[in-house]
Design a protein around this nucleic acid. Structure first.
Length: 489
RNA sequence: CGGGGCGUAGCGCAGUCCGGUUAGCGUACCUGCUUUGGGAGCAGGGGGUCGCAGGUUCGAAUCCUGCCGCCCCGACCA
């Protein structure tokens, strides 16, 4: 069926990505420019991401709250770097009422309903939150304050891509307040590690942890920590950030506390977030030309059972038995007993949607007390005995999870290159892509120059970076460590 | 904001250059029969403000003018 076919990665990577998103029923374009509709299958994956992260946040002492969608315009300008970073992409609410157009052609904005102060649709919530924290924090006994919110935010982007960059997106944003600098820095790193663990262990996407250069830092942060993943086309995707905000927002919003010595101090802050962009990382890391490939730990349905060629009493009975065994082990399973679709159609459909394991049950299988088990990641099929099937499937799901991570890690290793000359830098970037480890003289001028010349940016300075004397790949000036370059999304 | 492309049935498209039957094809959908271990076959059927608004013309999906929308590439960004 032509309309179900996916553009191959080789032909057009960008088109391939869009095909997967749409044909695997993850998301669709909406009537609003730059905004997408997240469809049930895509949203179910996001819910799994949310569920696990939320659990991890709570295990580390964080609690959820909710702050307003609208931010008074004046708030945004209180932190100079912050406003500079976000001003260019803010949606602004100016009126609060519509009226019938006198000419009868529908409704128009009622000019008499102009807001006294315009409201910004939050691009991020630091300002409204710190304005609130001022009232909540009086003493060191109120600290630390460890709050997260799940929310939507709006950033009016010039150009959008499904999941990777949309005008509105879903995310979580943590905002914490601490009595000491050290504690805030520790919080920033705690979350960075939490993100890295989640992305690697649940999404099966290997990441490099690092710190951003001054140039790439979050607007208003003293330090931005990041996890960077490598996509199949050799481009990097920033997958989560954790910011040490110093006392910048505390000073801007006058958030002080009395320490144990009865002295006023400004509090130390962090903020951190991951967004529905993670969906993009998930899709681009594992999927193939047959569709989406999902890691078992995040798949809304881990196992699908397909009766071959159609459900009979005998097959239904065998399927029900397997279903209850699998569910007993906490494995999510769907029995696709739709009589109107043929097996081949179902196979293709579930492969498109990335269901990790498919069990086929036919008369011939049952005669031999076995079923056909197919794994999505390698597309291998094998016959397994009904006896002990649940254990075997559980094992298989673990194998798939591990295989996806290992495969992605191997790919990243192959696509990570150390280069020492400017010629090699350009050549590797152009011909091979991926991550490049190279020396850099530490100046923003050089960083910007390299970006102008090659489109590559410094993704991060990897943590625990090996210290190694060298010379900057562009300027030849001395450098004491390599940094991670790549073209990025 | 610059460059490119597109707008015709739910989806994907042809038809537009060079105006002229009842606007067509694939797929999806509905009905029936036959099929059924990798996206079934045959037959019949329903579904259209040809993006919008003007204009030219006996006649416009097609020509002219204006507008709107979306996608892709680039600058900006999670």
């Amino acid at each position: 069926m032509a309309n179900k076919e996916i553009t191959s990665r080789e032909d057009d990577y960008s088109k391939w990505y869009i095909d997967i998103v749409q044909k695997a029923n993850l998301a669709d374009y909406s009537a609003v420019k730059g905004c997408m509709v997240i469809k049930p299958w895509g949203f179910a994956i996001w819910e799994n991401i949310q569920g696990q992260l939320d659990k991890m946040f709570k295990e580390t002492g964080h609690v959820n709250a909710y702050f307003p969608l609208f931010i008074p315009k004046s708030f945004l300008s209180k932190e100079a770097d912050h406003v500079e970073g976000f001003a260019k992409e803010c949606a602004v609410v100016t009126h609060h009422r519509l009226m019938n157009n006198p000419d009868g052609s529908g409704v128009v904005v009622d000019p008499s309903a102009k807001l006294a102060e315009e409201l910004i649709v939050r691009p991020t919530s630091e300002t409204i939150i710190w304005n609130t924290y001022r009232d909540w924090i009086n003493s060191y006994r109120d600290l630390p304050l460890l709050i997260n919110q799940w929310a939507n935010v709006v950033r009016w982007e010039m150009r959008t891509r499904l999941f990777l960059r949309t005008a509105e997106f879903l995310w979580q944003e943590g905002h914490t307040a601490h009595a000491t600098q050290q504690e805030a820095v520790e919080e920033t790193k705690l979350i960075l590690n939490l993100y890295a663990d989640f992305v690697e262990q649940y999404m099966a996407v290997p990441v490099i942890k690092g710190v951003k250069t001054a140039n790439e830092r979050f607007a208003g942060a003293d330090d931005t920590y990041t996890i960077e993943a490598l996509m199949q086309d050799g481009k990097a995707l920033q997958s989560g950030t954790s910011h040490f905000l110093g006392q910048n927002f505390a000073k801007a919003f006058d958030v002080r506390f009395l320490n144990s010595e009865n002295k006023q101090e400004y509090v130390w802050a962090t903020s951190w977030g991951v967004s529905t962009r993670l969906m993009g990382a998930l899709i681009m890391t594992h999927s193939d030309d047959d569709g989406l490939v999902l890691p078992p730990k995040l798949a809304p349905t881990q196992v699908v059972i397909v009766p071959i060629p159609k459900p009979t009493d005998e097959i239904n009975e065998a399927a029900q038995k397997i279903i209850s065994e699998l569910r007993g082990k906490g494995i999510s399973v769907k029995y696709d007993n739709d009589k109107k679709k043929r097996p081949g159609f179902k196979f293709a459909e579930h492969e498109m949607r990335g269901v990790p394991v498919r069990i086929g049950i036919g008369k011939r299988d049952l005669e031999k007390n076995q079923v056909e088990v197919a794994r999505r990641d390698t597309k291998e099929k094998q016959s397994l005995p009904l006896e002990g099937i649940a254990d075997a499937i559980q094992q298989l799901l673990e194998n798939i999870q591990n295989n996806l991570f290992e495969k992605a890690l191997k790919f990243r290793k192959e696509k990570t290159t150390k280069v020492d000359t400017w010629e090699d830098f350009q050549k590797v970037l152009k011909e091979k892509g991926g991550f490049i480890l190279a020396h850099w003289d530490g100046t923003t001028e050089t960083e910007v120059k390299i970006k102008e010349l090659t489109k590559a940016t410094i993704r991060c300075i990897p943590l625990d970076n090996e210290q190694e004397k060298g010379t900057c790949v562009l300027t030849g000036k001395p450098s004491k460590q390599r940094v991670l370059f790549a073209e990025s999304y």
